[in-house]
Design a protein around this nucleic acid. Structure first.
Length: 126
DNA sequence: ATGGTGACTCGCG
DNA sequence: GCGCGAGCCACCA
């Protein structure tokens, strides 16, 4: 038994996302100290439907994780994609007809450490 | 250990 | 803004 494996870390961070907010796979990866592990984050969430280490799609708000473009990213699972949009809208997240989420209003940056990172990187508007 | 897989991201054209 | 190709990663067999 090791420390929490990557999947479990992903689930914990995801559970920390407040209702009505969203973040991206890449940001979660970054929060976990693996800025290039975005794909692994997505894979972790996909494994959720099978149940992992006590975590299930019912206990982890997977719908609050979208891609860096601010759109739901599960093209190959049409049903899940529409479900994700429905769940987010139910939480008050604004999504237009094209499936684009208003990140300016709903992006969760998580730990302030991440915000600091953005600032140091010379980024956008608050 | 090696290779396949996938709910990612970025850079180009 | 959209489609593609090329990196990058943790898991599992």
């Amino acid at each position: 038994m090791a420390a929490l494996n990557f999947y479990e870390q992903v689930y914990k961070v995801t559970q920390a996302i407040p209702a009505g907010k969203v973040t991206s796979y890449g940001r979660i990866a970054h929060m976990l100290g693996r800025p290039h592990a975005a794909r692994a984050v997505g894979y972790a969430l996909s494994a959720l439907k099978e149940g992992m280490a006590g975590y299930t799609a019912a206990t982890v708000p997977w719908q609050r994780v979208v891609n860096s473009h601010g759109r739901v990213s599960i093209h190959h699972h049409e049903h899940s994609a529409s479900q994700q949009i429905a769940l987010l809208r139910a939480e008050g997240v604004a999504i237009d007809d094209k499936g684009r989420i208003d990140l300016a209003a709903h992006l969760w940056t998580g730990l302030h450490l991440v915000e600091l990172d953005d600032i140091l990187k010379g980024s956008r508007t608050p």
